[in-house]
Protein backbone atom coordinates (compact mmCIF):
# COMPACT_ATOMS: atom_id res chain seq x y z
CA UNK A 1 0.00 0.00 0.00
CA UNK A 2 1.42 3.33 -1.01
CA UNK A 3 0.36 6.88 -0.92
CA UNK A 4 0.53 8.63 -4.21
CA UNK A 5 3.76 10.51 -4.68
CA UNK A 6 3.38 14.15 -3.87
CA UNK A 7 4.48 16.36 -6.69
CA UNK A 8 8.19 16.92 -6.42
CA UNK A 9 9.02 20.02 -8.40
CA UNK A 10 12.76 19.65 -8.01
CA UNK A 11 12.97 15.88 -8.30
CA UNK A 12 15.44 13.79 -6.41
CA UNK A 13 13.27 12.89 -3.46
CA UNK A 14 10.54 11.08 -5.37
CA UNK A 15 11.67 7.58 -4.46
CA UNK A 16 11.48 8.37 -0.78
CA UNK A 17 8.28 10.27 -1.07
CA UNK A 18 6.58 7.30 -2.74
CA UNK A 19 6.94 5.28 0.43
CA UNK A 20 4.93 7.75 2.43
CA UNK A 21 2.44 5.94 4.61
CA UNK A 22 -0.29 7.94 6.14
CA UNK A 23 -1.67 7.12 9.55
CA UNK A 24 -5.11 6.79 8.07
CA UNK A 25 -4.01 4.19 5.55
CA UNK A 26 -2.36 2.12 8.25
CA UNK A 27 -5.57 2.10 10.20
CA UNK A 28 -7.60 1.15 7.12
CA UNK A 29 -5.16 -1.64 6.38
CA UNK A 30 -5.36 -2.95 9.92
CA UNK A 31 -9.12 -2.76 9.91
CA UNK A 32 -9.20 -5.00 6.87
CA UNK A 33 -6.41 -7.46 7.66
CA UNK A 34 -5.38 -6.91 11.22
CA UNK A 35 -4.63 -9.63 13.64
CA UNK A 36 -5.33 -9.00 17.26
CA UNK A 37 -1.68 -9.14 18.29
CA UNK A 38 -0.68 -6.76 15.59
CA UNK A 39 -3.43 -4.42 16.61
CA UNK A 40 -2.26 -4.46 20.18
CA UNK A 41 1.39 -3.89 19.36
CA UNK A 42 0.54 -1.14 16.94
CA UNK A 43 -1.77 0.53 19.38
CA UNK A 44 1.07 0.59 21.87
CA UNK A 45 3.70 1.95 19.54
CA UNK A 46 1.91 4.08 16.98
CA UNK A 47 1.22 7.15 19.09
CA UNK A 48 4.89 7.29 20.07
CA UNK A 49 6.14 6.85 16.55
CA UNK A 50 3.63 9.17 14.96
CA UNK A 51 3.95 11.87 17.54
CA UNK A 52 7.71 11.80 17.43
CA UNK A 53 8.50 11.48 13.78
CA UNK A 54 5.37 11.30 11.67
CA UNK A 55 4.53 8.22 9.70
CA UNK A 56 8.12 7.52 8.64
CA UNK A 57 11.08 9.59 9.57
CA UNK A 58 12.40 9.56 6.01
CA UNK A 59 9.10 10.22 4.37
CA UNK A 60 8.33 13.80 5.15
CA UNK A 61 6.17 15.94 3.00
CA UNK A 62 9.53 17.56 2.27
CA UNK A 63 9.55 19.31 -1.01
CA UNK A 64 13.30 19.36 -1.20
CA UNK A 65 15.96 16.71 -1.72
CA UNK A 66 17.54 15.65 1.52
CA UNK A 67 20.93 14.08 2.15
CA UNK A 68 21.33 11.83 5.17
CA UNK A 69 24.69 12.38 6.77
CA UNK A 70 25.71 9.55 9.08
CA UNK A 71 26.67 10.07 12.70
CA UNK A 72 30.36 10.45 13.41
CA UNK A 73 32.95 12.68 14.94
CA UNK A 74 35.71 14.93 13.65
CA UNK A 75 38.33 17.44 14.75
CA UNK A 76 37.25 20.94 14.17
CA UNK A 77 38.56 24.47 14.86
CA UNK A 78 35.71 26.06 16.69
CA UNK A 79 34.34 29.46 15.84
CA UNK A 80 35.03 32.52 17.93
CA UNK A 81 37.74 34.87 19.15
CA UNK A 82 40.37 33.49 21.48
CA UNK A 83 43.24 35.05 23.30
CA UNK A 84 46.00 33.25 25.14
CA UNK A 85 47.50 35.15 28.03
CA UNK A 86 46.11 38.31 26.53
CA UNK A 87 47.28 37.81 22.92
CA UNK A 88 44.95 36.83 20.07
CA UNK A 89 45.47 33.23 18.93
CA UNK A 90 43.84 30.72 16.62
CA UNK A 91 40.77 29.03 18.04
CA UNK A 92 41.46 25.64 19.61
CA UNK A 93 40.66 22.43 17.74
CA UNK A 94 38.23 20.15 19.50
CA UNK A 95 36.69 16.75 18.79
CA UNK A 96 33.06 17.18 17.86
CA UNK A 97 30.50 14.39 17.65
CA UNK A 98 27.39 14.33 15.53
CA UNK A 99 25.66 11.80 17.67
CA UNK A 100 22.65 10.84 15.61
CA UNK A 101 23.39 11.87 12.09
CA UNK A 102 21.75 14.70 10.26
CA UNK A 103 19.22 15.10 7.54
CA UNK A 104 20.50 18.02 5.47
CA UNK A 105 18.88 19.89 2.64
CA UNK A 106 20.91 18.90 -0.39
CA UNK A 107 20.80 22.45 -1.72
CA UNK A 108 20.32 25.86 -0.22
CA UNK A 109 16.79 27.15 0.22
CA UNK A 110 15.74 28.55 -3.15
CA UNK A 111 13.96 31.70 -4.19
CA UNK A 112 10.86 29.59 -4.95
CA UNK A 113 11.04 27.91 -1.51
CA UNK A 114 11.50 31.20 0.26
CA UNK A 115 8.80 32.98 -1.67
CA UNK A 116 6.37 30.23 -0.68
CA UNK A 117 7.09 31.10 2.94
CA UNK A 118 6.53 34.77 2.13
CA UNK A 119 3.25 33.92 0.43
CA UNK A 120 2.11 31.98 3.50
CA UNK A 121 3.01 34.92 5.71
CA UNK A 122 5.85 33.11 7.47
CA UNK A 123 8.73 35.13 6.09
CA UNK A 124 9.71 38.72 5.38
CA UNK A 125 10.14 39.79 1.78
CA UNK A 126 13.71 39.51 0.57
CA UNK A 127 15.49 42.70 -0.36
CA UNK A 128 18.09 41.15 -2.65
CA UNK A 129 18.34 42.67 -6.09
CA UNK A 130 19.96 39.61 -7.59
CA UNK A 131 19.09 35.95 -7.63
CA UNK A 132 15.52 36.32 -8.75
CA UNK A 133 15.56 32.99 -10.61
CA UNK A 134 13.20 30.68 -8.77
CA UNK A 135 15.76 27.87 -8.83
CA UNK A 136 18.58 30.01 -7.46
CA UNK A 137 19.38 30.18 -3.76
CA UNK A 138 17.43 32.78 -1.81
CA UNK A 139 20.04 35.42 -0.98
CA UNK A 140 19.85 38.74 0.77
CA UNK A 141 18.43 37.06 3.86
CA UNK A 142 19.42 37.83 7.42
CA UNK A 143 19.76 35.30 10.25
CA UNK A 144 16.38 36.53 11.44
CA UNK A 145 14.87 35.85 8.00
CA UNK A 146 16.48 32.40 7.89
CA UNK A 147 15.24 31.58 11.39
CA UNK A 148 11.71 32.67 10.50
CA UNK A 149 11.87 30.37 7.49
CA UNK A 150 13.06 27.49 9.67
CA UNK A 151 10.16 28.00 12.08
CA UNK A 152 7.67 28.14 9.23
CA UNK A 153 9.13 25.14 7.44
CA UNK A 154 9.24 23.04 10.59
CA UNK A 155 5.61 23.80 11.20
CA UNK A 156 4.62 23.16 7.58
CA UNK A 157 6.37 19.80 7.48
CA UNK A 158 5.82 18.77 11.07
CA UNK A 159 9.54 18.12 11.37
CA UNK A 160 12.12 19.80 13.50
CA UNK A 161 14.00 21.59 10.72
CA UNK A 162 16.45 24.21 11.98
CA UNK A 163 19.61 26.06 11.05
CA UNK A 164 22.75 24.00 11.58
CA UNK A 165 25.34 24.89 14.17
CA UNK A 166 28.73 25.92 12.86
CA UNK A 167 30.17 22.53 13.86
CA UNK A 168 27.38 20.68 12.06
CA UNK A 169 27.95 22.78 8.97
CA UNK A 170 31.65 21.97 9.10
CA UNK A 171 30.89 18.25 9.52
CA UNK A 172 28.51 18.25 6.57
CA UNK A 173 30.89 20.37 4.46
CA UNK A 174 33.76 17.93 4.99
CA UNK A 175 36.50 18.78 2.51
CA UNK A 176 34.79 22.06 1.68
CA UNK A 177 35.18 23.42 5.18
CA UNK A 178 37.86 26.12 5.34
CA UNK A 179 40.01 26.21 8.46
CA UNK A 180 40.62 29.81 9.49
CA UNK A 181 43.89 29.51 11.39
CA UNK A 182 46.40 32.24 10.60
CA UNK A 183 49.17 30.16 9.04
CA UNK A 184 51.68 32.83 8.06
CA UNK A 185 52.22 34.29 11.53
CA UNK A 186 55.87 33.97 12.50
CA UNK A 187 54.96 32.79 15.99
CA UNK A 188 56.86 35.64 17.59
CA UNK A 189 53.84 36.39 19.72
CA UNK A 190 53.79 39.92 18.31
CA UNK A 191 50.29 41.25 18.17
CA UNK A 192 51.10 43.52 15.22
CA UNK A 193 52.80 40.70 13.26
CA UNK A 194 49.77 38.44 13.64
CA UNK A 195 47.50 41.32 12.66
CA UNK A 196 49.49 41.93 9.48
CA UNK A 197 49.73 38.19 8.70
CA UNK A 198 45.96 37.86 9.06
CA UNK A 199 45.49 40.93 6.90
CA UNK A 200 47.63 39.41 4.15
CA UNK A 201 45.83 36.07 4.30
CA UNK A 202 42.45 37.73 4.11
CA UNK A 203 43.69 39.92 1.27
CA UNK A 204 44.63 36.74 -0.60
CA UNK A 205 41.07 35.50 -0.87
CA UNK A 206 39.98 35.27 -4.45
CA UNK A 207 36.89 37.12 -5.50
CA UNK A 208 33.89 35.07 -6.57
CA UNK A 209 31.21 36.24 -8.93
CA UNK A 210 28.28 37.76 -7.11
CA UNK A 211 25.36 36.44 -9.15
CA UNK A 212 24.03 33.22 -7.60
CA UNK A 213 23.96 30.19 -9.87
CA UNK A 214 20.92 27.89 -10.02
CA UNK A 215 21.19 25.34 -7.21
CA UNK A 216 23.73 22.64 -7.98
CA UNK A 217 25.93 25.09 -9.85
CA UNK A 218 28.84 24.62 -7.49
CA UNK A 219 28.70 20.82 -7.50
CA UNK A 220 28.51 18.34 -4.64
CA UNK A 221 30.96 17.42 -1.95
CA UNK A 222 31.91 13.87 -0.98
CA UNK A 223 28.72 13.54 1.06
CA UNK A 224 26.52 14.50 -1.88
CA UNK A 225 25.62 17.91 -0.43
CA UNK A 226 25.55 20.63 -3.07
CA UNK A 227 26.89 24.17 -3.33
CA UNK A 228 28.90 24.29 -0.12
CA UNK A 229 31.47 27.10 -0.23
CA UNK A 230 30.18 28.49 -3.52
CA UNK A 231 29.18 32.14 -3.75
CA UNK A 232 26.36 31.90 -1.23
CA UNK A 233 27.41 31.84 2.42
CA UNK A 234 25.08 30.07 4.87
CA UNK A 235 23.79 31.23 8.21
CA UNK A 236 24.44 28.99 11.16
CA UNK A 237 22.87 29.15 14.57
CA UNK A 238 26.21 29.54 16.34
CA UNK A 239 26.74 32.72 18.27
CA UNK A 240 29.91 34.78 18.45
CA UNK A 241 32.04 33.47 21.29
CA UNK A 242 34.98 35.09 23.04
CA UNK A 243 37.12 33.11 25.42
CA UNK A 244 40.46 33.54 27.13
CA UNK A 245 42.87 30.58 27.21
CA UNK A 246 45.64 29.86 29.67
CA UNK A 247 49.20 28.87 28.81
CA UNK A 248 48.07 25.26 28.20
CA UNK A 249 45.33 26.40 25.83
CA UNK A 250 42.59 25.61 28.31
CA UNK A 251 39.76 28.07 28.84
CA UNK A 252 40.20 30.49 31.65
CA UNK A 253 37.95 33.25 32.81
CA UNK A 254 34.35 33.74 31.88
CA UNK A 255 33.09 33.38 28.36
CA UNK A 256 31.29 36.02 26.34
CA UNK A 257 28.57 34.77 24.02
CA UNK A 258 27.05 37.39 21.75
CA UNK A 259 24.02 36.02 19.94
CA UNK A 260 23.46 39.30 18.13
CA UNK A 261 26.24 38.07 15.85
CA UNK A 262 26.05 34.68 14.16
CA UNK A 263 28.62 32.62 12.33
CA UNK A 264 28.15 32.34 8.58
CA UNK A 265 29.93 29.60 6.67
CA UNK A 266 31.12 29.26 3.12
CA UNK A 267 34.42 29.71 1.32
CA UNK A 268 35.59 31.29 4.54
CA UNK A 269 34.08 31.76 7.97
CA UNK A 270 32.61 35.13 8.87
CA UNK A 271 30.76 36.72 11.76
CA UNK A 272 27.73 38.75 10.75
CA UNK A 273 25.19 40.73 12.74
CA UNK A 274 21.90 38.87 12.73
CA UNK A 275 19.81 41.49 10.91
CA UNK A 276 22.31 42.05 8.09
CA UNK A 277 21.17 40.84 4.68
CA UNK A 278 24.21 41.83 2.66
CA UNK A 279 27.62 41.38 4.26
CA UNK A 280 30.12 44.05 3.30
CA UNK A 281 33.74 44.82 3.80
CA UNK A 282 34.91 48.36 4.43
CA UNK A 283 36.64 50.54 6.98
CA UNK A 284 39.50 48.61 8.49
CA UNK A 285 38.15 45.23 7.38
CA UNK A 286 39.86 43.66 4.44
CA UNK A 287 39.38 40.83 2.03
CA UNK A 288 36.40 39.56 0.18
CA UNK A 289 33.25 39.58 2.30
CA UNK A 290 30.63 36.85 1.88
CA UNK A 291 29.29 37.50 -1.62
CA UNK A 292 25.74 36.55 -0.65
CA UNK A 293 23.93 35.43 2.48
CA UNK A 294 21.62 32.42 2.20
CA UNK A 295 20.98 29.25 4.19
CA UNK A 296 19.98 25.63 4.28
CA UNK A 297 18.27 23.69 7.07
CA UNK A 298 19.05 20.46 8.87
CA UNK A 299 17.23 18.21 11.25
CA UNK A 300 18.39 15.51 13.59
CA UNK A 301 17.93 11.94 12.49
CA UNK A 302 15.65 10.14 14.94
CA UNK A 303 17.19 8.12 17.74
CA UNK A 304 17.74 4.36 17.38
CA UNK A 305 14.67 3.66 19.47
CA UNK A 306 12.52 5.78 17.24
CA UNK A 307 13.96 4.17 14.15
CA UNK A 308 13.33 0.69 15.59
CA UNK A 309 9.75 1.67 16.27
CA UNK A 310 9.46 2.95 12.74
CA UNK A 311 10.74 -0.34 11.34
CA UNK A 312 8.34 -2.29 13.55
CA UNK A 313 5.50 -0.18 12.28
CA UNK A 314 6.48 -0.86 8.69
CA UNK A 315 6.70 -4.57 9.40
CA UNK A 316 3.27 -4.52 10.97
CA UNK A 317 1.92 -2.63 8.03
CA UNK A 318 3.23 -5.32 5.69
CA UNK A 319 2.09 -8.18 7.92
Amino acid sequence: MQASAPSCPRGGDGALAKRTTSRQEVLVFLALHGKLAAKLIFAATAPLVLAATGPDWREAPDRVPVVHVAAGSFDYRIAGAFDREGRPVDAPVRRFAVGRGLAVMKTQVTVADYDRCVAFGGCAQRTAKTGQRPDAPAVGVSWQDASAYARWYAKATGKAWRLPTDAEWAYVAGSRFADDAVTSDDGSGSFARRWLAKYDEESGRTAVEKAPRPVGGFGENERGVADLAGNVWEWTDTCYLRQGLDAEGEPTGARTVNCGVRVVEGAHRAYVTDFIRDARAGGCAVGIPPANLGFRLVRDEPSRTRRALGRLQSWLARA
Partner: peptide, 10 residues
Protein backbone atom coordinates in the same frame (compact mmCIF):
# COMPACT_ATOMS: atom_id res chain seq x y z
CA UNK B 1 36.42 28.02 33.86
CA UNK B 2 35.34 24.86 32.24
CA UNK B 3 35.79 22.44 29.39
CA UNK B 4 35.44 24.17 26.08
CA UNK B 5 32.88 22.24 24.16
CA UNK B 6 32.09 23.18 20.58
CA UNK B 7 29.89 26.25 20.57
CA UNK B 8 26.51 25.52 21.94
CA UNK B 9 23.46 25.60 19.81
CA UNK B 10 21.21 28.29 21.08
Amino acid sequence: TGALEAPAQH
